[in-house]
């Protein structure tokens, strides 16, 4: 197990270098530049632009810029500076991350609890009317784009029924985050439900389920222990990677509901062509994602004893 973890951590290095380089190059390839963006339509004298570019190191070749950036990050834990505000990227993430964490956490709870419950109901009654209804609803959720769903929710629950606030004014208020969390969770929820359904329906026919019944175990125990332990293995894997994705922020959902989380910050960085900000943000998110997937892989071995890492 220890060796496996070490190997996985080492494998992260090339992934890490690859993603950061790719992002750096892609941002560099985009037209426009952040220094010019600072002055808006008015423009500035070429001398001022040149000195600012020099200050941020933007006049060097791209690979040198990348090298400087990586060195600063690894040696000084310096993920770069946001050009517009002059603040370090880590500070900006420090503001945005708690908001995203709350939103992602709520969405994750919805996704896991509702998705699994619906999946179990559907899987246990495969082929019946309940199953068909759940399949149709989840298919609908998967096929509706999230911004459409967001606006529908706003229209129905905020403007027509006046139950919830249409947008978030205080990101620490969980009741305001309720609607965006549900919208954000909807697609994953549908996937979790369908994954659980398939898994439950398949394991229901397994030989060990017949054994469990033949042992005279109560139905509660047959389903709760024998069926669930086996059926939830693929679901947990999906949930783990999805948690990593949720942490990366939700650009569209945050935009619709006016939430200033990681997604919104990334969006602004893209608009302003701030390569360093973007790379810094994404680098941290890549690390979070890699960490989540490592945890999931280790969890997999805990859930399924047939898998052993050497």
């Amino acid at each position: 197990m220890g060796r496996y973890v070490a190997r996985r951590l080492l494998q992260m290095i090339p992934v890490f270098i690859g993603t950061t380089l790719l992002i750096f190059l892609m941002v560099y390839a985009l037209p426009g530049d952040p220094v010019r963006g600072l002055f808006g339509d008015k423009g500035a004298s070429p001398a001022v632009l040149r000195s600012l570019r020099h200050e941020y190191g933007l006049d060097k070749p791209v690979l040198v810029q990348y090298w400087d950036y990586m060195r600063g990050m690894i040696l000084h834990f310096d993920f770069g500076t946001q050009v517009a505000s002059g603040r370090p990227v880590t500070d900006i993430l420090g503001d945005a991350f708690p908001v995203t964490l709350r939103l992602a956490g709520m969405a994750f709870v919805f996704e896991a609890v509702l998705g699994i419950v619906l999946g179990i109901i559907s899987g246990m009654r495969a082929g019946k009317a309940v199953d068909t209804v759940i399949l149709v609803v989840t298919l609908l959720l998967i096929s509706i784009p999230i911004f459409v769903l967001g606006y529908i929710f706003q229209t129905v629950f905020a403007f027509k029924l006046n139950l919830l606030d249409p947008s978030v004014s205080d990101a620490t208020d969980y009741s305001q985050l309720l609607m965006p969390a549900i919208v954000l969770a909807s697609v994953s929820l549908a996937y979790v439900a369908r994954l659980t359904r398939t898994s439950v329906a398949e394991n229901l026919r397994a030989d060990y389920m017949r054994t469990a019944i033949a042992k005279g175990l109560p139905r509660r125990r047959v389903v709760g222990v024998h069926l669930m332990r086996n059926s939830l293995i693929p679901v947990v894997t999906f949930l783990g990677t999805d948690l990593g994705a949720l942490m990366g922020g939700a650009i569209v959902t945050e935009g619709i509901f006016n939430i200033h989380g990681v997604g919104g910050t990334i969006y602004q960085a893209i608009i302003r062509r701030e390569g360093t900000t973007l790379v810094g943000l994404v680098t941290i998110l890549v690390l979070v994602y890699l960490f989540c997937s490592l945890i999931v892989d280790l969890l997999y071995a805990v859930l399924d004893p047939r898998i052993r890492y050497a």
Binding site: A206, D207, Y208, R210, T211, A212, I213, A214, K215, G216, L217, P218, V225, H226, R229, N230, I233, L303, D304, P305, R306
Partner: peptide, 25 residues
């Protein structure tokens, strides 16, 4: 019937690998 199963009438199945739950000791 459930109370009889396992305690008074028990069954041995053919394929023990698939008939035992793989994730429980």
């Amino acid at each position: 019937r459930r109370k009889i199963r396992g305690s008074r009438i028990a069954m041995i199945f053919q394929d023990a690998l698939s008939s035992l739950n793989p994730v429980l000791t």
